[in-house]
């Protein structure tokens, strides 16, 4: 019981993007509190060896009625966000790029482990964040776009898809496999130059020499890791620790769990030491002020840090 409460409090603190998307009180919230700082998801409980991860339902279980239609629409949007909701996506990303296997894969921030944890209470500012707000955050930062309205058809379909994937999952109980299960920071710290070597050997083939990804015609196949087509400086993936978790479990594609903690941190640091679209919360046009307000105690990140003689956080168009 007590545990559950602590968890809930912790959970409250995850919503990276809490509330900012809410047009009405955005300005106030930004000024009054640090509610939208990029605090990360709490560590998920470890999976006992003898147990499986939660198994979401199979596609054959989608009913053939209006509900099933909405589930399918949500899944289509999740996989083809850029193609189907272009007015809300400022880069070339799709939700599925970071939430692998259509939001089903454990340790890839699966939707079945997320949906039942909302609305989430955040003690710091005594506020409650909804699942929809959480998705709006991913639109604003991960997709470098504009969040659809809370009652829009798009967010309703995406919510319905997540609800369906969570069929049978307990409500309010953190499940193993949630988030990205970050590896601990390596003892000697990370090294960007070493990360570059890992990148050239293991990642460049798909993500390109300049992190630009690869397309077939207008369709993005391998997503961009930095530059204008990638997530912005406000996204959770810009944290080295978060990216290290994603990468270690899911990359190189199909060969997850092959990089050491050290390699995952090094290559995550290399990726996140490149320019990407500006943090949309930019304070008074100042990188330093933005760092102080939003990045200083947000995990390990390089926003506003000088790397190779250049201050990062300039943004790219």
């Amino acid at each position: 019981m007590k545990n559950a409460k602590i968890l809930a409090a912790l959970l409250g603190s995850i919503c990276l993007f809490a509330g900012i998307a809410q047009a009405a009180d955005t300005a106030n919230t930004l000024r009054n509190s640090r509610l939208d700082d990029q605090t990360q998801l709490p560590k998920a409980p470890a999976k006992p060896v003898s147990q499986q991860y939660f198994q979401p339902p199979a596609d054959t279980d989608i009913p053939n009625n209006a509900f099933g239609e909405l589930v399918r629409r949500g899944q289509d949007l999740f996989m083809n966000t850029k193609a189907l909701a272009p007015e809300y996506v400022g880069n070339e990303m799709n939700c599925v790029n970071c939430h692998i296997d259509r939001g089903r894969k454990a340790n890839s921030a699966p939707l079945w482990a997320a949906y039942p944890m909302y609305p989430a209470y955040r003690k710091k500012n005594n506020k409650v964040n909804t699942y929809v707000e959480r998705m709006q955050g991913c639109f604003q930062f991960s997709m470098n776009g504009k969040p659809p309205a809370a009652d829009s058809e798009i967010l309703t379909a995406l919510t319905t898809y997540a609800y369906w994937l969570s069929t049978g999952a307990p409500t309010g109980k953190a499940l193993p496999g949630r988030g990205f299960d970050e590896p601990p920071p390596p003892k000697g710290g990370y090294d960007i130059a070493r990360g570059k070597a890992v990148y050239e050997k293991q990642c460049q083939l798909c993500h390109g020499e300049n992190g630009e990804g690869k397309k077939v015609g207008v369709t993005s196949v391998f997503p961009a890791l930095w530059g204008k087509d990638s997530y912005n400086w406000g996204a959770g993936m810009h944290r080295i620790n978060t990216a290290a978790g994603f990468i270690q479990h899911n990359m190189p594609l199909g060969r997850g769990e092959t990089l050491s903690d050290q390699e995952a941190w090094d290559v995550a640091a290399y990726i996140n030491s490149h320019e990407r679209p500006q943090d949309p919360r930019l304070v008074n046009g100042s990188i330093d002020e933005t760092r102080k307000r939003y990045h200083a105690d947000d995990g390990v990140n390089l926003y506003g840090v000088v790397v190779n003689g250049k201050k990062l956080g300039q943004g790219v168009q």
């Binding site: 996989m79 083809n80 850029k82 193609a83 799709n94 599925v96 077939v216 015609g217 207008v218 369709t219």
Partner: peptide, 10 residues
């Protein structure tokens, strides 16, 4: 021809 200007859906 393969129309490169059209998004291919997954």
């Amino acid at each position: 021809a393969f129309d490169e200007s059209q998004h291919r859906l997954r």
